[in-house]
Simulated scan of single mutants.
Amino acid sequence: MLQEPAPRYQGHKSYSYLEPHSDYRVFPLAKEVGRVPEYDLGLSDAQRERVTRLLTEHMAISLHEHAVVLPENVGQLREYNRTARQRTGFEGLSRSGLTAVFDNFMAGASCVTSENGWKWNDLIYALGMRMSDIYKQDYVTLATSLADIYEAKRNGQLALVAGLECSSPIENELDRIDILYGFGVRQLGIAYSQANMLGGGLSERRDGGLTHFGRRAVDRMNKLGIAIDISHSGDQTSLDVIEASRVPVFITHAGARAVWDTSRMKPDEVIRACAERGGVIGIEAAPHTTLSADHPHHSLESVMDHFKYLVDLVGIDHVTFGPDTMFGDHVGVHVTYASGYAHDAGNRPEHPRVEYVAGIENPGEAFGNIAGWLVKHDYSDDEIAKVIGGNTVRVLEQVW
């Protein structure tokens, strides 16, 4: 369910302070609100009021999103990304009810200088261009500490935490981690499916685990205060990172392999290890990922099947949500970059294809519907507060 627009949002559109067609290339963009029908949870008025109250009173933090607006014609996506001027979905975010969002900047698809992504220059272009726009308005604010997130909550703003899914752009330059920290990055993934200098990705047939350089990188992230993400790392690399890190790590966006048997999901061994060291797993919702046998048509219900399993497995203190959504045709993104996403599938079980994930299609609606589902299923206020943000805050208190 969509929330009312945040009063602090004053209608800013990305790069509106520049001259279109002259200063930047214009693309017709997807709708941030109303692109797909609103999901009906069948809530009563009292339940809807409770959802709004919970999102207002408590920290609501999405552990993984790409809060950008895609071109209306997804066939223009590569051209759009090559400009480095991805648009932030300010309007949609204003209706999300979120306190903070971990934004991962689509670095793998920001192919400014290379068709293959994950290049250092591309990363800096994408990061700097988005930040330049964020600094020109006062609703979304860059957060580099928990104090910043709390201040945003008090001020009616939305805190954006800069994150990156993959460390491949640092190559073998350890000090680039410090540079990213200096640019405001506070969350960093180890490997994005393919192996790199740090360790193995989940698409590799043999995962050699965390490398010597990877251990040095983990140590540097710990010293700086950068949250570590192992969502796209191979199983052995994930276990090695959990062991090597002096503080808890995140699985920012994944699900349970026991519920849906693909390499993109995490096995119980990794999930338990993460939780035993105090970490948290954020549940994924990108199209055709967190499916289940009971709900093979990907929807909010499929995602919540993973939630129920993970709560039973490691307890409610170690589960949250990292939906991994964006504003626009997410399925079209996967088709456009098919060679880059196919390796995530593993031996994927047969399942129906969907045009979008009903109920959790974009960053604007995801947490309202997640909170609505929890309210509908009679979870307590304390339980809901933990899984919509409290668990993430607990980890950040140790990491940052």
Rank of each mutant, 00 (worst) to 15 (best):
H232K: 02
G340P: 01
L158D: 06
S233C: 15
S114C: 12
D294S: 13
T252K: 01
G92L: 06
M131E: 14
L174M: 09
L98Q: 15
R220Q: 14
T99D: 02
G89V: 08
G184T: 09
E361G: 06
D229N: 10
G340D: 04
W118F: 15
S44C: 05
T336G: 04
F321D: 08
L374M: 15
G364N: 07
L158E: 04
D329S: 11
A254E: 10
S193R: 14
L77S: 05
R215N: 04
I134W: 05
R25A: 11
D235R: 12
H66S: 09
R78L: 05
H298T: 06
E397D: 10
T336F: 02
T237I: 03
R87W: 13
D381Y: 08
R220N: 09
L18S: 07
V303H: 05
Y17D: 15
G214H: 05
A162W: 04
N347H: 13
D103S: 11
P287E: 09
L174K: 11
H330M: 13
A159L: 08
Y379A: 01
Q76A: 13
P352L: 09
A46L: 12
I124S: 02
H232M: 00
G92D: 09
L310K: 00
Y192N: 14
I134Q: 11
Y379D: 01
G359D: 04
D378M: 01
C111D: 09
P7M: 06
G89T: 10
D175I: 00
Y356S: 04
A46G: 14
N369P: 03
V331N: 05
C274G: 05
G389T: 02
R85G: 03
A273P: 08
A275G: 11
A100M: 12
L146E: 12
N172Y: 07
L224I: 15
S299L: 06
D381K: 06
N362T: 08
E383S: 06
G322Q: 10
G75K: 09
E91I: 11
Y341M: 08
E65A: 13
G332N: 11
S145W: 11
L300G: 03
V69R: 12
E57D: 15
Y309L: 12
S292C: 13
M304Y: 00
I230Y: 01
H64G: 03
E365Y: 00
M197Q: 11
V375Q: 07
Y17V: 04
K376C: 03
T211V: 05
